[in-house]
Design a protein around this nucleic acid. Sequence first.
DNA 1: CTCATTTCTTGAAGTAGTTCAAGTTTTTTA
DNA 2: TAAAAAACTTGAACTACTTCAAGAAATGAG
Lengths: 190, 190
Amino acid sequence: MHEALFRHIEKFTNLEPSEIDTLESCLQLSKVKKKEHLLQEGQICNTMYFVVKGCLRQYIINTKGSEQTLQFGIENWWITDLLSYHNHTPSNFYIQAVENSEVIAIEKPTLEALLIQIPKLERYFRIVSQKSFGAMQMRIKFLFTMSAEERYHHFNNQFPEFVQRVPQYMLASYLDFSAEFMSKIRAGKL
Amino acid sequence: MHEALFRHIEKFTNLEPSEIDTLESCLQLSKVKKKEHLLQEGQICNTMYFVVKGCLRQYIINTKGSEQTLQFGIENWWITDLLSYHNHTPSNFYIQAVENSEVIAIEKPTLEALLIQIPKLERYFRIVSQKSFGAMQMRIKFLFTMSAEERYHHFNNQFPEFVQRVPQYMLASYLDFSAEFMSKIRAGKL
DNA sequence: CTCATTTCTTGAAGTAGTTCAAGTTTTTTA
DNA sequence: TAAAAAACTTGAACTACTTCAAGAAATGAG
């Protein structure tokens, strides 16, 4: 049922069959329709989402009322608001499906119990979150050192398939420039 | 000897006296002089640094040859290049002392061994890195939604003491604007 | 205390990006 | 398969910031 997640966990730590059973019994796969929200600003985020299939995004609505995507989550990524999750504070973010997707949603009490029953999961989540933090550091580096055009080309080189997969205006805001500017970059009109 | 770190760990998990002993025996405090480097670009980052006293920063040298601070680390923060650490790849960053500082430096083999001997440390590092990731998400939000002036005032409200502690030009680059612009913001000349 | 170094300030000129508004194309839905 | 909705394009006007250059102030080292 949840092979995708098991395979991901096995990359970082080896589970016993009994542990797989325990885990299996706590998980359920849910379908999320395109544009459906898993988290809204102001809610307390109590759930971690593992993307089995499809694409989610985390976004905010800025002071001008327009959406800015801060993060995408595709297959084998976790997505959640970790600050709201840990501190029980209202979230600053929306989490929404960009495509029809399938996710494993784990509620905090379930996960807390699992982490106690299967301490290896502590290791798994440690490594995953340390790597994500490392990736975020690189992201900040790119935001700081590259021009809008460089960011676009760099992203397009690294993830050409992904660029086709999401609306341009979402990617533009993720790369921190306007949709109009992206259009001009792509047309080579500068 | 290393109370600062023990106190920090105890916030997230409770260590047995024997575990404290084990840990104690693996740690050593080192002094770092202002401007001294703990990591240089191109090196493989093999060490995690816990700041006991003082202030470190992670920075890059951009294409124009000037320094840009990506992260500060003060008392009770860990600082390292987690991507280089996990992937054994050359680091993109410098880590340098901003003030004369004291750090606990843990080498990767030591830490790996400790995580096996004291599994509770997996939990500690998981929570710390998840919270750091959450903080990074907020940082990106601020970078995306606030003007330079707003970022300065917001930071200055949140961390007034810290603003006094580091050179203005370092803080300016951390907030992603020029030192000259910072000077004008502070003078109210806009 | 004094000289050298580092940090901060100021103004003028330039630019990488935004915003707006309108039109076009593509995708979705019924 | 038509109509509606969503996504993309284009150009013109604007602006938030950068860059440069030079001087002033603060800090540090011997």
